[in-house]
Simulated assay, not measured.
Amino acid sequence: MPFMETSRRQRVAEYRAPVDKTPSWRTLVAGLDPVLAQSFRVSARCGCFMQAARSLNIKATLLRKQLAQLETQLQCSLFSHSDNGFTLSRDGLQLHAQLIALAHERDLPVIEQPLIRLAVAESILHDILGRDLVALLRRNASVRLDIITLDSELSLQAVSADVVVWLAGTDSPLPGPSFAVSQPQRLARLDYSPYIAKRYSRVASRPDSLDDLADFMLVQWQHDQQVESFRPWNSVVDQRLAGVVQLHSYELMLEMIRCSACIGLLPHYMSQFDRGLIALPGLFSQPMQRQVWMAVNADSRDEAGVQMIVELIHNTFNERREWFEG
C-alpha cells in the first residue's frame, strides 16, 4: 500500500506540472527581426496597409511581403481581413501588446526626421512643383518638409532654406538668396503673354492689338508690378482708369481669368497647365521673359533629404520640358 500511494502521488505531480516547451510571446517577440516587427507595429497603428507603407516609405507590396514573412515565422495569422480593411486577430493583438510592452521597457525613442526647408516662387509651386510634392508626401509620410512660398524679392531676401527656387532675369540670378548657396542652376526660361479663357472669347472677337484690350477687364498679380521685364504689360495696366483688378493672390488671379472674362499676364506654359486658357500673342512687340533658378544651401547641400528634393525638382522640370520650349 505505501508503495502504491507513493506512485499515485508521483503521477499526480507529473500531471499537475507538465513541461511547457512552447515558447512564450515574450520570447518570440525578443527574437523578431526589427524590420518585420516595425512593419507590423506601424500597420497595426495605422489600420491600413497603404497608410502604413507611406509611413514606412516603402511600397505596399513590400509591406505585405514582410507581414506574410512574419506570419510564416510565427506560424499564425495576425490579421482578419474584410471588405472594409483589416483588424488584428487574437494572435495579432497579443503580438501588438507584447511589442508595445517591449518598446516601453526599452524606452525606444522616436527617430526624428531632419527638417527640409524648401522655398519656392508662388507661381512655380502652384503650376509646376505642387503635384510632384504631393506625390512625394503620398510615398513618404514620415518626411518633415517646410514649404515656404516666395511672392516678392523681399521675401526671397529674407528667407532661410535648404533649397530655393525663384524667378529672376534671364541673364543673372540676382537678386537671389541672401545666405551662402551653391552655384545657381538654370531650370527653365519662361515667356509671358496675356491670357484669356476660351469660353469667354470667340476667335473672331479676341483682341489682336493693344487698343482692343480696352473692351476687356485686366487682372494683375501685384507681385508682377515690380518685375522690370513686364514693363510693357504694367504700363498698359497703370494707364487704366477703370476695368482693372489688382490681386495679392496668384491662385485667385488665375480664377479671375478662368471665370470672370478677365485678361491677365501668365507664363507661356499655361495652355499646357490649363487647356481652358488661351494665349493672346502679338499684342506686345517686346518679349517678356523670366528665368527659373535653383540654388542649394551651402551648409546642407550634401544631406540626403536635401538631395532628394533637388532630384525631384530636376525630374519635374525635365518631364515638363515641352512646357518651356517654343
Rank of each mutant, 00 (worst) to 15 (best):
S7C: 13
R8K: 02
R8D: 00
R9C: 03
R9H: 09
R9A: 06
Q10C: 05
R11E: 10
A13S: 11
A13I: 11
Y15H: 13
V19H: 05
P23Y: 05
W25V: 12
L28Q: 15
V29F: 03
L32D: 09
L36C: 05
S39T: 06
S39F: 00
F40K: 05
F40A: 08
S43W: 00
R45H: 09
G47H: 14
C48E: 08
Q51K: 15
S55T: 03
I58H: 04
K59H: 08
A60K: 03
T61G: 02
Q66D: 07
E71D: 02
T72R: 00
L78E: 04
F79N: 01
F79S: 01
F79H: 07
S80F: 03
D83H: 04
G85Y: 08
T87S: 10
D91S: 15
D91E: 15
G92N: 08
A97E: 08
L99H: 04
I100C: 09
R106N: 06
R106M: 11
D107K: 14
L115P: 06
I116L: 10
I116A: 05
I116W: 05
A119S: 14
E122F: 01
S123K: 10
I124K: 02
L125G: 03
H126G: 08
L133G: 09
R138L: 12
R139I: 02
A141Q: 12
L145M: 05
D146E: 13
I147H: 01
I148H: 01
L150N: 00
L150H: 02
A158E: 11
V159N: 00
V159E: 01
D162R: 06
V165M: 12
G169A: 14
T170N: 07
D171S: 04
P173K: 00
L174V: 11
Q183R: 11
Q183C: 09
Y192V: 10
S193C: 03
S201D: 09
S201Y: 01
S201N: 14
V203L: 09
R206E: 11
P207T: 12
P207V: 06
S209R: 14
L210C: 02
D215E: 10
F216H: 15
L218Y: 07
L218N: 09
L218T: 11
Q220E: 10
Q222G: 03
D224P: 00
Q226P: 01
E228K: 15
F230P: 11
S235D: 15
D238H: 10
Q239D: 14
R240F: 02
L241R: 13
G243K: 02
L247E: 11
S249E: 12
Y250S: 05
Y250L: 05
M253F: 00
C262F: 05
L266M: 13
P267I: 09
S271A: 14
F273A: 09
F273L: 06
D274C: 08
G276Q: 07
L280C: 06
Q286W: 04
M288K: 12
Q289E: 10
Q291F: 05
V292A: 03
M294L: 14
V296C: 10
V296F: 01
D302L: 13
G305I: 08
Q307E: 07
M308D: 06
I309A: 06
E311W: 08
L312H: 08
I313M: 02
N318F: 01
R320L: 12
